[in-house]
Simulated scan of single mutants.
Amino acid sequence: MTKRALITGVTGQDGMYLSRLLLSKGYEVFGLVRGQNNPKRQIIEEWAPEVKILTGDLLDQSSLLRALNASQPDEVYNLGAISFVAYSWENAQLTSQVTGLGVLNILEAIRLYAGDDIEKVRFYQASSSEMFGRVQEVPQRETTLLWPRSPYGVAKVYGHYMTINYRESYGMHASSGVLFNHESPLRGPEFVTRKISIAVARIALGLQEQLTLGNIDAKRDWGFAGDYVDAMWRMLQQDTADDYVISTGETHEVREYLDIAFNHVGISDWEKHVFQDPQFFRPAEVDLLIGDAAKAHETLGWKPTLSFDGLVKKMVDADLENEKAKAGR
Results as ranks from 00 to 15, higher is better:
85 V>C: 07
287 D>Y: 02
225 A>I: 08
164 I>D: 11
201 A>N: 03
64 L>P: 06
11 T>R: 14
31 G>I: 03
285 E>I: 11
293 A>L: 00
261 A>F: 09
268 S>P: 05
165 N>W: 12
313 K>G: 04
289 L>S: 11
158 Y>L: 14
62 S>D: 13
55 T>G: 01
113 Y>P: 04
251 T>S: 15
219 K>H: 06
236 L>N: 14
72 Q>M: 03
103 V>E: 02
252 H>M: 01
193 T>C: 10
237 Q>S: 13
258 L>A: 04
148 P>S: 13
210 Q>Y: 04
159 G>S: 09
158 Y>P: 00
318 A>S: 14
309 D>G: 00
305 T>M: 07
30 F>D: 03
45 E>R: 12
269 D>N: 15
208 Q>V: 09
283 P>V: 08
293 A>K: 01
285 E>N: 09
142 E>K: 07
148 P>F: 08
126 A>T: 05
14 D>W: 00
228 Y>D: 13
185 P>R: 11
33 V>T: 09
4 R>A: 11
317 D>P: 08
242 D>I: 11
131 M>F: 04
214 G>Y: 09
258 L>G: 10
224 F>W: 10
88 S>W: 12
250 E>C: 10
57 D>Y: 04
117 D>L: 00
16 M>F: 01
213 L>D: 05
281 F>T: 00
141 R>Y: 09
109 A>N: 07
65 L>R: 06
262 F>A: 11
74 D>V: 02
150 S>W: 10
217 D>Y: 02
134 R>N: 15
149 R>P: 01
47 W>A: 03
54 L>F: 05
2 T>N: 11
298 E>I: 11
147 W>M: 10
20 R>F: 08
15 G>P: 14
11 T>A: 14
144 T>Q: 09
10 V>R: 12
321 E>C: 04
56 G>H: 09
186 L>M: 11
170 Y>S: 03
109 A>C: 02
182 H>P: 00
33 V>W: 13
165 N>D: 12
266 G>Q: 15
57 D>M: 06
60 D>K: 13
313 K>P: 08
93 Q>F: 07
194 R>I: 01
264 H>I: 00
91 N>P: 05
244 Y>L: 04
13 Q>D: 15
278 P>L: 05
60 D>S: 12
202 R>S: 12
149 R>E: 12
252 H>E: 09
91 N>L: 02
326 K>E: 14
15 G>V: 14
112 L>Q: 15
168 E>D: 15
243 D>Y: 14
